[in-house]
Design a protein around this nucleic acid. Structure first.
Lengths: 399, 399
DNA sequence: GCTTAGAGTTCACTAGTTGGACATAGACGG
DNA sequence: CCGTCTATGTCCAACTAGTGAACTCTAAGC
């Protein structure tokens, strides 16, 4: 970064201001930009020219029935971001642009026993396939967001011990993928990315504080505070799965007893149904059966909901988010699980906090994490990377 | 505010940058300012002159054994802030300046049954007394921070129903005091202010994420996230006292059962000792007896600590703060209560989150809240108010 | 066809930062 | 005791970038 406080930094800030305004509105005329940014028309004129020359922005001679306005919009290929999500059973990749549009998305099953190298091979292939399919310029790729189903050590960037995929422990996924793709890769865990995905594209739109609860093999939460992922100083914030509900409850894989996870996570819940419903039951299956009316599955899902509600109530007392979004397979159960959650929250949270909380199912289903990875890439480049092309392209034009 | 994005806004930002640098370091030479802010020496020279003319800053011809450096420091009376803290049994007022120095501080007992008008009368008198005692210029008062022992509704500014002082419910303390003192008053609850106080002056120095647990008549927490109080969208974040520890525990005043408060707050704990130790026991007394070796009191305090530890463990799993500071009377018990808290945290929090957490007693005792009120006033004026005098004073100087 | 009003551009002006030149004053060495 | 050295703070010319006002352009409305 240049010297802060200089005029050039001001100019840069104004560039960003314009880009952000355009991004939020989708398309604006210069006069509108001037009004929303507070900059003068003359300045906007200059900035738009600069951005256009740099290819960040496109100017269409507007067909609107006005006097002569030119609509300014982000050029579709001004910058490309890629989201990659490693799940427990699948690999998912999405390609998007700076205008928050998803250009392509694909998922394929991933063998749980796959080694990390194998996983990265597959990811690299899938990314390449999508890049070709969408025909985007490789050099326009500004960043990659990567989701992994386990805790990431912020400092070393390596995958922590409770990763669900065996053989991945200790790997540094961001480094690995960055080496293969040659672009900056930002990594985070699935719960945080799910939160970001729902915030930008799903049930969390318009909210600035949100908790995304992901119930799958384990239970995790992604916290968004003031529009940003909150990871905590040590990077392990959001471990709602291991808050204690019952000090003398079942022993949890974390070593404690009565963690929320032991009442809600697939690995503890599914065995309850095995004697009656067979051994190869999945969470998805339980949800489907419950929706079809199976009383046992309904009961189990309601119990899970009640326990999650207790956890959410604690979360709610402590953080008072305005919205809680439920993700993971369990969200598909809809009211079957949301009802008990709300009931539990109503019972255990202090009334003033519970009153203004809305508990919603995720709107993106299994896509939340990839889309969150896209959003992570977008937010990490912080609107500045997309200016680089402008700045670099513009400079030689003056020589 | 002027048009953002203009040069004048840049200048303003640079002014703030310099002021902040000086404030953080206490005293700097111009060359040092230039280095830490990244501004050029020439710019710093201009800015310092402007600030000096405006009276925000003082330049002392340094006695340091150098070439010829002039130390720049915030002028003591550039701006005055006042902190007012209504406690359950006392009223406390502090006067400080922009350099984060406390000029005067005084407390007096306040009758719990006092009406709100009576309370405000007393507060007004005490503030006036301290202003006279310190001899500060009334017109320099930039803001007042006000602490009240109950939840404040952010929108209406009125005191919520669980206020400890009866007869205050529904009053709007900030408005009231602002009317009497004629300066902007910012209000918050005692836990949040305690957190801020410990963050700026006490056990939280150097940390950006902190949870302050105040155990008194009730149990509350003030959360500092990224250096700022986190109140949550609804303003009720930090209600750690009402997280559920035991679903079939004692009934709490909030209507639920087994809240942390029912195991830790004075109103529930003191009765346990009444049969053996008499009825007019206070938390303070229990702590004193425990320190003197009374086994019953020691046991009670240890139990309280264990329960608080459970709550902190939940907090820790969710938010992963790097430091937890214990405030209120209970903090005086030192290791008698901290030991059990740490033990409980170690048992119930996930290891990676617990490992890097430090649990400390508050360093400020009962002063935490007033000092926090000072800090609130300082932070609310956000370094800009103190520039107003500069800007206004500087303009006529050029005519 | 003329007027009108909003859109965008150009231009001279101004605010504000910067680099470099310069004066200053103590420290150090001889 | 004096010259040199070095870091400080100030001044000035150059430069960057935003602004208001004047200007041009286009299509709509009468």
């Amino acid at each position: 970064m240049e010297t802060p406080g200089s005029q050039s930094s001001l100019h840069r800030a104004n560039l960003e201001r314009v880009v952000r305004a355009v991004r939020l509105a989708g398309s604006l005329t210069q006069a509108e930009i001037a009004r929303t940014t507070g900059l003068s028309a003359a300045t906007v004129s200059n900035i738009v020219r600069e951005l256009k020359d740099g290819g960040t922005v496109e100017v269409t001679p507007t067909s609107a029935g006005g006097r002569r306005a030119r609509a300014v919009s982000l050029s579709g290929d001004a910058g490309i971001v890629i989201g990659v999500d490693f799940g427990h059973t699948h690999l998912r990749v999405a390609v998007g642009n700076l205008a928050h549009q998803v250009l392509a998305e694909e998922s394929e099953p991933l063998d749980v026993d796959a080694s990390s190298t194998q996983g990265f091979d597959r990811a690299e292939q899938l990314v390449n396939r999508l890049i070709e399919a969408t025909g985007v310029d490789r050099t326009k790729i500004a960043g990659v967001g990567l989701g992994v189903p386990g805790p990431i050590d912020l400092e070393s960037g390596s995958l922590g011990s409770s990763a669900i995929l065996p053989g991945w422990i200790g790997t540094k996924p961001a480094e690995e993928l960055q080496g293969r793709l040659g672009v900056p890769v930002h990594v985070d865990n699935d719960a945080n990315l799910g939160a970001l995905g729902e915030l930008v594209w799903g049930s969390g739109r318009g909210v600035r504080d949100l908790a995304y609860i992901k119930v799958a093999s384990g239970v995790g939460a992604g916290l968004v505070i003031s529009g940003k992922i909150y990871r905590g100083p040590g990077g392990t914030a959001g471990e709602i799965g291991h808050i204690t509900l019952d000090e003398s409850g079942p022993v949890c894989r974390c070593g404690n007893r009565g963690c929320l996870e032991t009442f809600a996570a697939a690995r503890y819940v599914l065995p309850l149904l095995q004697s009656s419903h067979g051994t190869d039951l999945t969470m998805e299956g339980v949800v489907r059966l419950a929706r079809d009316g199976d009383p046992g599955c309904r009961r189990v899902i309601a119990d899970v909901g009640r326990h999650i509600g207790s956890g959410v109530a604690n979360l709610c007392n402590l953080l008072n988010p305005s919205r809680v979004v439920l993700g993971g397979d369990l969200a598909e159960a809809g009211e079957l699980v949301l009802g008990p959650i709300r009931e539990s929250v109503g019972r255990y949270a202090i009334p003033s906090a519970a009153r203004q909380l809305s508990v919603l199912p995720g709107a993106l289903g299994g896509r939340a994490e990839v889309l969150g990875a896209l959003a992570l890439a977008l937010s990490e480049m912080g609107d500045s990377t997309l200016l680089d092309s402008t700045l670099h392209a513009a400079t030689p034009a003056f020589t």
